[in-house]
Design a protein around this nucleic acid. Sequence first.
DNA 1: GTCTATAACTCGATAGAC
DNA 2: GTCTATCGAGTTATAGAC
Lengths: 207, 207
Amino acid sequence: MAKKENQQAADSTEQKIFDAAHEVFTQKGMDGTKMQEIADRAGINKALLHYYYRTKEKLYESVARAVISKAIPAIRQIIESDLPLEEKIRRFIETYIGIISRNPFIPLFIISEINKHPERFIDSLMPKDLPKPAFFFRQVEDEIAAGRIRPIKPQHLIVNVISLCVFPFVGKPMMRILLGMSAGEMRLFLEERKDEVTNFVLAALRP
Amino acid sequence: MAKKENQQAADSTEQKIFDAAHEVFTQKGMDGTKMQEIADRAGINKALLHYYYRTKEKLYESVARAVISKAIPAIRQIIESDLPLEEKIRRFIETYIGIISRNPFIPLFIISEINKHPERFIDSLMPKDLPKPAFFFRQVEDEIAAGRIRPIKPQHLIVNVISLCVFPFVGKPMMRILLGMSAGEMRLFLEERKDEVTNFVLAALRP
DNA sequence: GTCTATAACTCGATAGAC
DNA sequence: GTCTATCGAGTTATAGAC
């Protein structure tokens, strides 16, 4: 199992704090998180948190930065690759849903925190190497011009794909209630999403 | 303009408090909201908040209950109607995106708060008259059997439609950054979603 | 009903012993 | 490095005058 890159050994105090903070912050957000809860989960006391990370703010930033910079590169690589469009869409969906399944709290964390502090994210937490969708857009337009897919604005296509991948995880509790599913049924249902989203998107693109 | 149903006249103190609380709670959530800010926005002082709603918790519950019970009936009506499937999908998307456009903070509020306090929602805030998707499911299966639409699990169809409607609004700031849009461009882009989602879904359903 | 003043409490942060 | 104890700022909640 991989360690957090620029962190200490997995069971150092600093790492235990970081892991505990990661868990609590991503589930409860900045405001909802208490330093006491992080300390409890790390099996130490509050004073130590401040010894390693001077303030709650700094600990939060450390977590947020790690979360964001971990989420982006995989996506970027696919978006900017020169795979043919259909294969690119397949891999994007496969990879994206895979990441979210393994980190189900991350999307809502990012969305909530961007909404609450847009400046902080844009100014200091946003990585500089965002995916550049320009090439992907040209690719879509070429396929449309060649009559191989139905006309659609590339921006809408990308937003549609992301929506179909992310939202069912973000809105899981809502969906469960609406569809009347048990926790187990919901898990199975979400596992089907890779195939479902791929089929749905490719079907929508047929000329 | 309609008044909140079971509330006092629109400019009574109690109503002013409720409206202010509605605005702040839906944008900042339970934890992010300060009673002082609600008091300021209502043009009164903190003590009065406690006079009308004994605790912050009770005020929050009052708002949350109103938000949820307002969001559901319009949807329910369409889902359970006996319109033909295509028309039902058209109206659902039209209505749903319309509601969200006019109340852009509501979806994220509901999603965040369900995730933070699932028990509270399910136990005490969920209305009893949830939309019953059973009839809609049968309708989808009939269309598939008749060969009029491509085979798809009805549960996935409904989740797909909701995802396409809701997520772009919830993830607006993220989408703006990714697509490099100005606030104005984003507004126009979201206005196109009614048509885009309708076309996309109906295209995906072609046999 | 509405206000001012303040009590009671929560929580991030620090001091200081070991 | 780690702990206990405590401070101090900020918030919810109440007491009491008008």
